[in-house]
Each structure stands twice: as structure tokens, then as C-alpha cells.
Design a protein around this nucleic acid. Structure first.
Length: 462
RNA sequence: GGCGCCGUACCCAAGUGGCUAAGGGAGAGGUCUGCAAAACCUUUAUGCACCGGUUCGAAUCCGGUCGGCGCCUCCA
């Protein structure tokens, strides 16, 4: 896997034999997640599935950020959660619950395996306070202007993950400088002085009534569930320079130990105009796509078409091509299932070359485009038996997560349509092809495709 | 201004020093069929933005040019 820390592809060697502990940065639940956000969760799901294919037991922790954070620049603007609540006439908690529910529905629809542990920020405030205390005891903090800051000058490796050259960065070039900070990159661990009114979520702490800084939740919760050192931490590529950089600083400041071994980041989903984002207003939600007639797994297939470290161009045209591809694939698999009985054969799944290639491609930094290619080559192969192919497909799908084994031809039709098919058969026997063809066209309008085979007529729904 | 990524067929997209440049979508021709559909076969990049260079050999390495994108700011 490609490790952002060090920027090179390295074999994953877990801290504990046979077990992988991974943490993924989850959503801030104040609005609908768009499909660009979901791309990252899909990548993380694939990673988990690949690790499991390789025999690891994976502990997978995802956080839910339900504490409000700032809506725009570092120290200005409204609290996101608060803003969402006000606009929709709901309480902050209601907003969080509402969007968290939708988020998990999206994940399920995309066939993303549930995290082993899901944790909410609001339920771990004490853990955060305890962690901040340790950072404070180790001398990495200072209190200024009502807030407790992390002092990056005390942490020599600051910015290592993001390859930040602090002297080159133009601090404050685009955002107002916080006069209370010693260094522009210092960040708040605990706020007591809210920058906006109506802050409703406040907790008592040794530094006064207030609320935690954004980054501390991931450090606190990941360590609580995975320990002070764990294997993998994932997220979107945008989290590298600030969020993950700060997480590393505060975590290692607290423990004095190296925190995370592998950092794995997913690239953006782009539109022809640039990255898909809320602020550009060029995003789709999964719901939008479903309303347009796509299935969630069409989007999953679409994401598998590109490598997770490359920007992927999204367009409805491309999504169409993914949908068609998935449809064709499922049709072929359904046909394999039908003929499985009279084309069975023995053979060891592990000996099938396509499967070997598939695994080597999956283990090579999650090369899903290659894996799909391997799958297609398997499906089209004419030398293997249907039953063996299906076995291999089943294995491959534990990684791809496309529900391929469930692929079926929908032949469920009502009596009226059955009668029409009979009439057409009769017409064909009478060589009245004009009538037969018109019935076929009618049925096509109704979404029933007829195919004449040597064994008789076969039908399926579109 | 600084940092980084990318430019492969009609579209999406792998491949990053050496066999015929994956795979999918779309299109075309053919076999089959009463006609279709499905399936199968063939087909669509002697070439990987452009120009130089290194090399026995480059899409792949180096330099330059042009073009696109991301980050440096909440963001997946």
C-alpha cells in the first residue's frame, strides 16, 4: 500500500500478527454526504475487504463528528451544526441524528461493510479532555485568549506527513491571523471562548466551559478503541495538511510514541469543472442518482473503474457506462448460474490464474481497475466450467462487493404477459411474423425482452 | 507566490524501461436467426499532449513547451 507518510509503496506489516487495526475519518453530520465523500468510504471498504481476503482480522473504527465545528475559515463563520439546525428548524442533536442515519443508509446501499466500532464525538468528550491533559502535562500547550492551543514549535516533526515547509507557507494569506497564536499553525485543543453566538453544545473542563477543537476527537477515540499505536489511518486527501498533521502532533505529544504506521488517503472525485464539492454546488448525493434511475451499486462499480489515488472524472455519461457494464456482468453471471448444472466441473479456485492475478492486483495498492479486468477475463473465458467460474466470482466479489452472486434474471411475469408470449409462439408457428414481431415490440415497451433460443423462447425484464 | 498530481482510442480508465499498449462503455462489420435479441468472431491508438535528450530499447527515465487539476483555508 502507498503510505502518505514517506510517500512510497510499502508492504503492510501489522503491529500484531494476523490483526489490523484501522481508523477512518468519518463524516461531520450536518448535511447530506455527496458522492465525492462516499468515494473515500468506498476505498476504505475495499481496503478492509482486501485485508480480510488476505486473512487478517480487521478492527475498523469510524468516527461520527457530531460536535459543531466552524463553517468556513479557521476562526470565523458559524458553527456548521448550528447553522444546519437553525436553517432547518431543528436542534443540533436532531440534525446530527438525521444526517447520521442517512449516511449509514448510504453506506449500506453501497454495500459497505459496517465498521466494527462507530463512535460519536459527543459521547467521548471526557476521553478528549483526558488526552488534552496529557498533552498539557507534557508541555505542548499554552493558554491564550480563552483557548488552549497546541504549540507546534515544541513538536519538531510537525508537518512531516504533509511535507509542509513551514517557512515557505504564507500564513494568513487567505485567512485572518488569530492574534492569540504564537505560530500561525498552532491549533486549538479546547475552546472556551466561542466565536459565535448560541453555541449550545458546551462541556465543563479544566480550562473552563467550552468545547473541543476539531482534531482532538480522532486522536482520543482512535486511541481509546485501538490503543496508543495502531496500523492504518485513512481519509480523504484533503485531510493531510491540517487535520491529520495536527492529529499526529497532538497524539504523539501525548504518548511520546509513534502513533500510526500507515496513512492511506483517497483522491477526489472531479467533475469537468473541478473537484466535486459542496461549495462549488456541483455535487450529487446518492439519493439524486437513485432518483435518476441508477442503483447504488452502479456507483460502486463506477468507483472501482478508477484507482483510488487518482482523481476520477465523474459524469452521468460515465456512470451510464458503469451501469451498462454492471448490467452486462450480472446478466452473464445469471446465465452462468442457469447452465451451472450441465456444465459443472472440478477445479481448485486457488489454481485459477485469473484469481491469482486478481489477488496480486488487489494486494498491489488496491488496483481495482485491474481487478475488474481480471474478473471480465474470467467471465469471458471459454475453457473453465461454469461452476468453477462462479466459485471464483464469489471469491472476487468478497473484495468487489458488487453482490455478483445474487445476480439473477428476473423472469417473474404475470399471466397476461405469459398469454402474450403464448400468442406470439402460436403466431410464429403459423409463420405470421408480422404479428409475432408486433407482440414482441409490445412486450418490449412493457420492459420484457424476448429471446428465441433453440430450446424455446426465453424472457427477462429489463 | 509556493508545493504536488495529471495529459493513453469516440468516452471512462489500467499499464510507469523490453512480449501483439488491460478492461469496460459506445460504434461498425460478420456468424447465428424468419427477423431480432443474446452469444461468438472481427474491428476502432504502428501509437500513449508536443519538442528535444538518455538508452540496444521509452507511453514508462531526464529537460523544456503547451494544456488540465488539486493543495497551501472548513472540506472525502
Amino acid at each position: 500500500m502507498f503510505n502518505t507518510l514517506g510517500r512510497e509503496i510499502k508492504e503492510i506489516v501489522p503491529l500484531e500478527k494476523g490483526r489490523i487495526k484501522m481508523y477512518v475519518c468519518g463524516p461531520t453530520v450536518y448535511r447530506y454526504a455527496h458522492i465525492g465523500n462516499l468515494r473515500t468510504y468506498l476505498m476504505e471498504d475495499i481496503l478492509r475487504r482486501v485485508l480480510e481476503m488476505d486473512g487478517y482480522e480487521v478492527t475498523y473504527v469510524m468516527n461520527i463528528t457530531d460536535v459543531g465545528h466552524l463553517s468556513d475559515d479557521a476562526d470565523e463563520g458559524e458553527d456548521k451544526m448550528l447553522k444546519g439546525a437553525r436553517e432547518q428548524g431543528l436542534s443540533v442533536r436532531e440534525i446530527a441524528e438525521f444526517y447520521a442515519k442517512i449516511f449509514f443508509e448510504d453506506l449500506e446501499a453501497l454495500n459497505i461493510i459496517k465498521p466494527t466500532i462507530t463512535c460519536k464525538a459527543t459521547e467521548h468528550i471526557q476521553d478528549m479532555i483526558d488526552l488534552i491533559k496529557r498533552i498539557e502535562e507534557n508541555g505542548y500547550t499554552y493558554f491564550s485568549g480563552g483557548n488552549l492551543y497546541f504549540d507546534i514549535s515544541k513538536f519538531p516533526d510537525y508537518g512531516k506527513l504533509a511535507l509542509l515547509d513551514l517557512s515557505e507557507l504564507k500564513a494568513g494569506s487567505r485567512i485572518a491571523i488569530d492574534e492569540n497564536k504564537k505560530n500561525p499553525h498552532d491549533f486549538v485543543l479546547w475552546f472556551t471562548r466561542s466565536k459565535f453566538e448560541h453555541q449550545t453544545m458546551l462541556w465543563d473542563s479544566p480550562w473552563g466551559k467550552g468545547y473541543p477543537g476539531w482534531h482532538i476527537e480522532c486522536s482520543a477515540m482512535s486511541m481509546k478503541y485501538l490503543g496508543e499505536q495502531f496500523d492504518i489511518h485513512c481519509g480523504g486527501i484533503d485531510l493531510i495538511p491540517v487535520h491529520h498533521t495536527n492529529e499526529i502532533a497532538q497524539s504523539e505529544a501525548a504518548t511520546g510514541k509513534k502513533w500510526v504506521k500507515y496513512w492511506i488517503h483517497g483522491e477526489f472525485l472531479n467533475t469537468p469543472k473541478g473537484k466535486m464539492s459542496k461549495s462549488e454546488g456541483n455535487f450529487h448525493t446518492l439519493k439524486d442518482l437513485m432518483e435518476k434511475g441508477y442503483e447504488p451499486l452502479d456507483y460502486r462499480y463506477f468507483c472501482l473503474l478508477g484507482h483510488y489515488r487518482s482523481q476520477l472524472q465523474f459524469s452521468l455519461e460515465s456512470l451510464d457506462s458503469a451501469r451498462n457494464a454492471r448490467k452486462n456482468l450480472c446478466l452473464r453471471i445469471a446465465l452462468l448460474k442457469q447452465e451451472e448444472g450441465n456444465n459443472s466441473g472440478t477445479g481448485d479456485v486457488e489454481e485459477v490464474d485469473y484469481y491469482r492475478l486478481f489477488k496480486s492486483h488487489a494486494y498491489d495498492d488496491l488496483n481495482m481497475p485491474q481487478c475488474l479486468s481480471d474478473l471480465w477475463n474470467l467471465v469471458k473465458d471459454t475453457t473453465l466450467s461454469s461452476s468453477l467460474k462462479l466459485k471464483v466470482i464469489g471469491k472476487m466479489d468478497t473484495v468487489l462487493g458488487l453482490n455478483l452472486e445474487k445476480a439473477e434474471i428476473d423472469t417473474d411475469i404475470d399471466d397476461e404477459i405469459k398469454a402474450s408470449i403464448e400468442r406470439r409462439e402460436q403466431a410464429r408457428k403459423n409463420r405470421d411474423f408480422t404479428l409475432a414481431d408486433s407482440i414482441r415490440d409490445e412486450l418490449k415497451q412493457l420492459g420484457i425482452i424476448l429471446e428465441d433460443t433453440p430450446d424455446g423462447v426465453r424472457w427477462r425484464k429489463i
